[in-house]
């Protein structure tokens, strides 16, 4: 089925209750503030970015580290590596638990790639965040609570799709990452009001499906 959901697989979930300050510092956290850590690996990096942002909306946690791995989950360095390692940090272990709950719920029910050609050889991530959390709002330079379309696809599909999305609705590009990213996809963040973001995401997905079906038109 075209545009079937591809649910991300969570590969590992671990906690560190009293992290060594040197570790926290090396991973970009504040050793004073981030004494407890929660670590998750997953096979869909963009779904994880959205889920990490979701965690900041539900608990007093900060995303201290989130990096995609080169070439993606199909070329992972180990059984548990997947495509991304995300780390959230907080003072209270309780906050880490709440944050992980929200993060895993988001991965299970909300953010995911979609199958764009019925064979899972082309996938698309046309996700709309209705209200940005602290993490992605800082990354995007937008105010928390703004709607944002988070659009990811392989290089040619993403390029055609971004053009279609920008023309489909009253949206503005916040950040465009041309290919290649670490995982060799291409990424775009668009903002506007919620309906516009939704329309842009649908247009993006439709364009990706079209390119996947007719690559040489």
């Amino acid at each position: 089925m075209i545009l079937e959901r591809i649910i991300p697989t969570v590969l590992s979930v671990r906690r560190i209750l009293r992290a060594d300050p040197a570790l926290v510092k090396a991973y970009g956290g504040d050793p004073e503030k981030h004494t407890s850590l929660g670590l998750v690996t997953c096979d869909q990096d963009d779904a994880m970015y959205v889920a990490l942002d979701e965690a900041t909306k539900h608990a007093q946690v900060d995303v201290i580290f989130a990096r995609s791995f080169y070439a993606g989950a199909a070329h992972a360095s180990g059984r548990l590596s997947g495509e991304i390692l995300g780390v959230i940090g907080a003072t209270e272990p309780e906050a880490i638990e709440n944050g992980l709950d929200a993060l895993l719920r988001c991965l299970e029910h909300d953010a995911c790639f979609y199958d764009a050609d019925g064979k899972r050889t082309v996938t698309v991530f046309p996700h709309v965040i209705a209200s940005l959390g602290e993490y992605l709002s800082k990354e995007a330079g937008l105010a928390p609570g703004t709607p944002m379309a988070y659009l990811v696809a392989p290089p040619i599909e993403a390029t055609i799709g971004l053009d279609a999305a920008l023309k489909a609705a009253e949206v503005r590009a916040v950040r465009v990452q041309p290919p290649p990213t670490e995982t060799n996809f291409a990424c775009a963040w668009l903002t506007g009001d919620l309906d516009a973001c939704e329309a842009a995401a649908v247009a993006y997905a439709a364009a990706v499906v079209d390119v996947a079906a007719q690559p040489r038109r």
């Binding site: 089925m1 545009l3 995401a201 649908v202 997905a205 439709a206």
Partner: peptide, 11 residues
């Protein structure tokens, strides 16, 4: 996304 999926023939 559901509407687009239907438009593309899933139903």
């Amino acid at each position: 996304m559901d509407a687009l999926r239907d438009e593309l023939g899933s139903s």
